[in-house]
Write a protein that binds this DNA or RNA. Structure first.
Lengths: 114, 114
DNA sequence: GAAATTAATCGTATATTTACGATATAAAAT
DNA sequence: ATTTTATATCGTAAATATACGATTAATTTC
């Protein structure tokens, strides 16, 4: 049981879900906000503003990296992150087109059933 | 360990994360798509188009209900779902304002560090 | 070169999610 | 009234996510 069925869905559905998953934890939303606020890469400063242990923050950063939402570079002993606007934009527009498509489709045949 | 720290974040961060979580599984994206495509409430038809057991689909529908993204009504033995555009819109605009705010803030002080 | 700093990774405990079959419930059809 | 149909709920197994402390690795600073 609990076998993974995720791969049986459409690519676009999987991608949208993965993007959503990347921002489905308040810590990761907060991290993105913090990085965007200073724009340029902050590093251990993120740990200071979050109510989480350093190792936990590192784990969340790794997930954001995996999703391609942030980029990192090493500067001495410090690590430096910034938003990857390319994928950020890509997902934002995919997200919007999903919503808008759904909405216009629905509006053309609205039946107010529920 | 693994105690829940989610409540220690800002309300807006928690809400955005919860919304993202609701659509963080391809099955739920597919369900929303399916409902929106016909606009009006379909029901067991959703089970037919998904590669999941009836009970699993029911569980995903319950989550979308909990998040307020869909509404349901009972019609005989059948169950009928449709998109709740009110919360749908609310979240879409919250999502966009998050992205846009982040982006304009960043652009004003871009340093291209990574 | 030793000590301190910074951040990633490892190991691990716990919590949550995902998935299913079985069962329950309730209306419709026979 | 019984059977069928449609869907929700329960119980449960397995997978994943979350969180932390301890450790490692790599630079700086002393």
């Amino acid at each position: 049981m609990a076998q993974n069925k995720k791969e049986e869905f459409k690519k676009s559905e999987i991608e949208l879900a993965e993007f959503a998953k990347a921002i489905s934890h308040p810590a990761r939303v907060a991290i993105l906000k913090a990085i965007a606020a200073k724009d340029m890469c902050i590093c251990g400063e993120i740990v200071d503003v979050l109510p989480l242990a350093q190792s936990t923050v590192s784990q969340h950063l790794k997930e954001l990296m995996k999703a391609g939402l942030i980029q990192g570079s090493i500067d001495g002993t410090k690590s430096c992150y910034c938003i990857n606007w390319k994928t950020f934009d890509k997902f934002a527009s995919e997200f919007n087109s999903f919503f808008n498509k759904a909405k216009t489709k629905a509006e053309s045949s609205r039946k107010d059933c529920c």
